[in-house]
Amino acid sequence: MPNPGPAYTAFFKDKANAPFVHDILYNITYGIDVPLLENSTSTIKQGAPAIICATKPGQVMWRDVDGVNQDGYTDCLQAGAAGHALLGIRIIILCPDFFSFPVQPPRSKSQCLTVDPQHTNQFEGDGFSFSRYQIWVLLHELAHVYIFVANGGLSDFYWVNECLNLPANESLMNAQSFNYYVANLFLGCIDLPQVGANTPSGQASRVELLETDDNGTVAAANMTRARNWTVSDVEVFGAYNGTESP
């Protein structure tokens, strides 16, 4: 469109960043190949992100930066996550919780988040309802991979009002910002917070978000998360069914 719509304005703010947002979503949609890091020992140097379903121990394992063996399935259970991405080696692990989620929400405006009537520059609630569907878990993790390939960025702010509050450049590194943007378009939501609007007299200002929201990255409450592990500090020694390695 010649001008940003309300969802773009809310989550990405700066019209100049539209080409980057377009490219990330295009790459996700078409499964564009991404390169492995140059120091990878794999014979497969590029390809679309690999998705591994962790349904039991031993399917995908690696050594972390301290040389400690890690197991994707155990890691899922300990973190309470629906999925996470191993960045740099383009692996996405889908956790057992992922399979308990519906595929996608009904395509209806009734599923849209509600603007807080007392603070029209923010939503009511945490926004996690937008993430308890398989389609949004996949989008979140794929966004992490393609953003990392594009600019090395990793930001994992998750609550919807945290994402609204991000500066324009940081929103480009935040996977959940892409999730909220696409989800609003998918559902046809048009009633979004007035980002940057003046606070009505007698109401709390926008800085309240930094004081009341959990603004740590990769918080324990996150339904999905990302790990900034690269091939240089992670040795993957088992994947899928043990017969295929990345």
Rank of each mutant, 00 (worst) to 15 (best):
G5Q: 04
P6K: 03
A7W: 07
Y8N: 02
A10H: 03
A10C: 09
D14E: 12
D14T: 10
A16D: 08
A16C: 03
A18I: 08
P19D: 09
F20K: 15
H22D: 15
D23T: 12
L25P: 04
L25H: 09
Y26H: 13
N27V: 01
N27L: 01
I28T: 09
I28G: 06
T29M: 13
Y30D: 03
G31D: 07
I32V: 10
I32L: 06
V34A: 14
P35S: 11
L36P: 00
L36H: 04
L37H: 09
N39C: 10
N39L: 06
S40D: 05
T41W: 08
S42Y: 04
T43N: 11
I44R: 14
K45D: 02
Q46S: 15
P49S: 12
A50T: 15
C53T: 13
C53V: 09
K56R: 13
G67S: 01
G67Y: 00
V68A: 00
Q70I: 00
G72F: 00
Y73A: 00
C76H: 06
C76P: 14
A81S: 12
A85S: 15
L86P: 00
G88Q: 08
I89Y: 05
I89F: 07
R90S: 15
R90F: 03
I92E: 12
L94Y: 10
C95E: 07
C95G: 07
D97K: 04
S100I: 04
P106I: 05
S108V: 13
S110P: 02
S110L: 11
Q111G: 04
C112Y: 14
T114H: 07
T114M: 09
V115P: 01
D116G: 07
Q118I: 01
T120H: 11
N121L: 10
N121D: 15
F123R: 12
G127L: 06
F128Y: 12
F128D: 08
F130W: 08
F130D: 13
S131T: 05
S131F: 03
R132V: 02
Y133S: 02
Y133W: 10
Y133A: 01
Q134A: 03
I135H: 09
W136E: 13
L138W: 04
L138N: 14
E141D: 10
L142Y: 15
Y146P: 07
V149F: 02
V149P: 00
A150G: 01
N151H: 14
G152T: 08
S155Y: 08
S155R: 14
F157T: 06
F157L: 10
Y158M: 10
E162F: 03
C163I: 02
C163R: 02
C163S: 06
L166S: 12
N169H: 12
S171G: 11
M173R: 15
S177P: 12
S177Q: 14
F178P: 08
A183P: 01
A183E: 10
F186T: 11
G188D: 11
G188I: 06
D191W: 05
P193Q: 03
P200E: 07
A204N: 08
V207W: 07
L209P: 00
L209V: 15
T212C: 05
T212H: 07
D213H: 11
D214R: 10
T217F: 03
V218G: 05
A219N: 13
A220Q: 09
A221R: 10
A221V: 08
R225K: 12
N228W: 08
V231N: 05
V234N: 00
F237M: 02
F237S: 01
A239N: 02
Y240D: 05
E244M: 06
E244Y: 11
S245Q: 09
S245C: 06
S245G: 05
S245D: 09
